[in-house]
Design a protein around this nucleic acid. Structure first.
Lengths: 203, 203, 203, 203
DNA sequence: GGCTAACCGAGACGGTACGTCGGGTCTTTAC
DNA sequence: GTAAAGACCCGACGTACCGTCTCGGTTAGCC
């Protein structure tokens, strides 16, 4: 039973123009300064067309996020068998990007958007790859016994990302080396391979 | 030799009224909806008096934060000798507060403010006590060899706080138990006391 | 071939409310005290709607003037064949009106408006009827040879009106009798009818 | 019994600086744009010093007017025995001055001031010399029987000045020749010398 | 020589209004 | 029925001045 109605259908052209304008303006101008009128103007679209399909500028940003319009994230974290090294290799360029004005401002904007729109927060870490990419690598590390069984991989990924957010919010510049060290600490002591099942038995 | 200037002096009454109104309105209405006009109205003050002394609403919030106008933080984390237990005891009420509408909204507001005003971000963790209180307890734990020497206590505190922020931004409700487990994991495996000087040297 | 534009059209309701509020407020409060915000408030209209169509409060007053919103001027100056008497009959109530607080203040306001907005000055005398009404009667007088041929009727009307303005600006109260006498003098000596063509040629 | 009190006396320096600044600013910026704060700033004076001695900016302008700070009026209207020619000679440069931007704007400003401050209106014509100078010349003309006895000389002078004001308010530029013609008409027909006592007896 | 008062500059204060921007809704015309 | 254009009411922006009020400092003139 397909739903059908008369009249023209949602304009894909308009949708694309709107989301594209949103992403561009957010990056260029920041969350404050991002306005519906500005988006409509840049997209060559009526305001009503935006309001018809999205409830707020937060919703627009959330959809941009889902569409991956902000980062072209490296789709994988390498797996050389050395978890700590892999994470360093993956994190280092991310941290450097976040030390550029663009990177800082983009993260600021996305965090600001997240405070107003639940949908942005819910997908923020995914957009950075911290969700799937990082967690997957951690899961592999557990399987490979580089991390103890029972490690809360998803949460650990979020903690790393949370630390990153806080670092950006609270300092003028991320101390890359210190941050990498912190991540290393959070993973716990580098030990001999964990026994398959038994919990770590202190001597 | 102090610098002299004749003429009237800054009104302490106005300052207090403005900061107090700012704190109240931020808690009650949230960061968006917080307006200079609203603050002026609530404080019974001219707008110019605000602009004369603060450059933005972000600066106002930052000063409120420094004045500790948002939380009456428990001034200590207990020290029973059991770090994990002490942290649980300290964190639990904080987490529950952040699960109330007021708590959630306040953290959202402060994070939003931090994205616009560096000063807010710089003092956010202090306001929550995550800086001094938490780090001090961690330092004591290092001294008591509950944590390995060389633990980056300050950063660890920030990581915990960052994880907390991210949890609030990305979920509708904090899973208190899971978060406490995460913190426990971040502290590393519960081990016998660390040797005084030598770091654990895995083979 | 009219120029087309899609979209909504100027609201006649808003226009009427704005001009009506302007006229009322100008009469009641005076030129200073007349504010765009006050007009918008009284008209139940957004400020932007005013700024969209008028450039200043002067322009608003000018339009009110053109619409004849300040005076319901007696549409004719009587013509009994006696110019001086007709002018007295027409001027007397005007002068008395200008001796009331309302009349004085209205003329003050219009003159003040004229100093800021050329359009007000250009139509001031019309609004008082000094332009068409008075000049027409003078023209008739020239035709009837009550005034010499070549009398600059338009300018004479303006001079009478100018004298009136100056009287109101410079004195607390118009001396009605003296003003009427002045007008009589300005018309020149009451003479026998002027010869049709030849100007009076004194020896 | 003189009233006396201790303490310093009104500062002549401040008075001069304030009036001078007022005159300069009025000429340069116009009545609107003339502000107490601006005057205080330009005069290097506290606002209170202005408010202590004058009740409004209108009062300041009135005092400037009395001090003759706006025009250096030709102190006499010539008397060649030919009234019409003398008036032309005196009026022509005045009219040309009022056709300059400065002149126009100054008259506009003074008229605007007059609408707010009775004192300005009361002395406006004096400042232009229309009062004493013009009326004196007219009086002399009556004495010389160039004008009929009983001519309301003061009022006639005001009428000329009023016509001038209206001309400036209502047109972009004064038509000098037409204005001079008007004045000539207002003086009445050029006749043989009036008989000393008898009213003009038409043939 | 001190005291007292009024003067002065400076400028903070509670306000009102400015002219602009953007929000979200509604209306009109065109496709 | 969707879309562009944009007018509408509204609320906030940050600024300019208002007129009042403290300040600290500086003169008079009288005890």
């Amino acid at each position: 039973m397909t739903e059908h109605r008369s009249g023209p259908v949602r304009s894909a052209v308009a949708r694309e123009a709107i989301l594209s304008a949103t992403a561009t303006l957010l990056v260029d101008e920041g969350w404050d300064h991002l306005t519906i009128e500005g988006i409509a103007r840049a997209a060559g679209v009526g305001k009503q067309t935006i309001y018809r399909w999205w409830s707020s500028k937060g919703a627009l940003v959330a959809e941009c996020l889902l569409d991956g319009r902000f980062f072209a994230v490296e789709p994988v974290v390498g797996d050389t068998g050395d978890l700590r090294r892999d994470l360093r290799d993956w994190l280092t360029p991310v941290l450097h990007f976040l030390n550029t004005p663009t990177g800082r401002s983009l993260l600021h904007s996305l965090v600001a958007a997240a405070t107003e729109e639940a949908g942005v927060g819910a997908h923020l870490s995914e957009a950075f790859g911290a969700d799937r990419l990082l967690a997957d690598r951690l899961r592999a590390a557990v399987a490979a016994r580089e991390l103890p069984p029972g490690t809360p991989v998803d949460q650990l990924g979020h903690a790393v990302f949370g630390a990153l957010i806080f670092e950006v919010l609270s300092k003028d510049e991320i101390d890359v080396a210190a941050f990498l060290d912190l991540v290393e600490f959070l993973l716990g002591p580098r030990t001999a391979l964990f026994a398959p099942a038994a919990p770590p038995a202190p001597a």
